[in-house]
Design a protein around this nucleic acid. Sequence first.
DNA 1: TCTGGGGTCCTAGGACCC
DNA 2: TCTGGGGTCCTAGGACCC
Length: 420
Amino acid sequence: MIALVDCNNFYASVERMFNPALKGRPIVVLSNNDGCAIARSDEAKALGIEMGTPAFKIRETLAKNNVAIFSSNYTLYGSMSERVMKILKSFVPKVEVYSIDEAFLDLSNFPYTDLFELAIKIRESITSQTGLPISIGIAPTKTLAKMANRYAKKCKKEVGVHVASSKERIDELLQFTEIGDVWGIGPQYRQFLKGHGFKTAADLLKAPEEWVRKEMTVMGQRLLYELKGINAIEWEDKAPAKKNICTARSFGALLTHIADISQAVASHAATCARKLRKDNTCAKEVHVFLQTNPYRKEDKQYMAGITMKLPVASNCSTEIIKYAGKALRLIFRPGFQYLKVGVMVQDIVPQNQIQLGLFDTRDRKKDAMLMQALDNSNTTYGKDIIRYGTHGYGKKWKLRSAMLSPCFTTRIDHIMKVKS
DNA sequence: TCTGGGGTCCTAGGACCC
DNA sequence: TCTGGGGTCCTAGGACCC
């Protein structure tokens, strides 16, 4: 049996946890750049605020209903996520952290009848130790556990746990779940399947395997197995090595000058390099892409990207910034209003398996020492205390983040003060 | 005025090889 | 009229996830 643990309205719940005055008040957390709603508390959902709605479209609703609005604070959410995962690991040895607010637990070694009780205990621990509400779904496969979790959220709000182990419970779950709410069915497949008369997960189960395979590739076939209770999705004990690392942001305002965009590119390149060093990996390629705002139909549009090969796989910020800058100069065209730029490092290899270049002129030892010093001071004194001059001091490209809460758990100067 | 960011996997088709 | 057969590798694009 597999459990899926999911934090309810995670970002909104974290914000509320640090500010109990928000109890009962609707909360919305906005995406980077304060662009659209990416998390809502139950109260905000009840107001009809949909996931992903642009902020400017709901401004009236937000004001009228006294909704608490936050810019997203990923440092804070990441730190709270670590706490939750740590508690889960104290209960069950096999935990797969699936996303910032979700984890699968392998319960195959727990006695059958105890699963419900175990889930209740886990839930109580998380609530008492982190203050965050969670839901737990338990079923024979990952896909069914996802469905059970959803069921717990919708129909068993008080206990927050649903176990679907018997055939009757699983059938009930399959009939309850609409086809578009099945894990792995997105908008495209949902429409396609509805067109063929499938309404619920139970309907899909009746479809011939060959037909599903033909119309929905092996992904659909795997899904079918999972619904039948046969595990078809691999268990990933530790996060597999990343194949790409991407850092990209929309600008706070549209930009036209390459000088401003260069600063963003340098900063994104440095972030990619830092992420590589954190994973002890190096990349052989740097890809830079640049685009105008596709929503502005009245503007001339331009999209471009280019991949630069590095002479030797690297995770040195200096070098990656250099190649990313070259790439930008190759794709930049004057006369456009740019919205977004991104840097992606590709063809990633472990740091200790690098093929050295015959004509390599860089002093890689020195690079490594410099990066070590950079990372150390930035860890000790806060992110970006030391940065490259190429990042610039102008903040034209910086994102908007107008309603950011403090980093309660990761910055000593943001720690909460309690008067007694 | 204002529309996120970061990933994965799969398939088809083209280039190229013998 | 008729124009081989079998591989591999790479890329672009589409679908999905949170």
